[in-house]
Amino acid sequence: MAERLVIDPITRIEGHLRLEVQVEGGQVADAWSSSTMFRGLEIILPGRDPRGAWLMAQRI
């Protein structure tokens, strides 16, 4: 019998994480993890002055 376990949120980590586990007959058949938060630093940083960009990048 297949069962889908969902653990969200995963605590004691920095950031937001969700795990989904497919269990079949007591064995893990498949698993998915997803980061459930996005800020877009990759979109914000291009074009910024490197003398100021480091301050932002260290706060990822």
Partner: peptide, 13 residues
Amino acid sequence: HETIMTPSGKRAE
């Protein structure tokens, strides 16, 4: 507090 609490998932919520 997600980062320092012991329970995860449903028990945290």
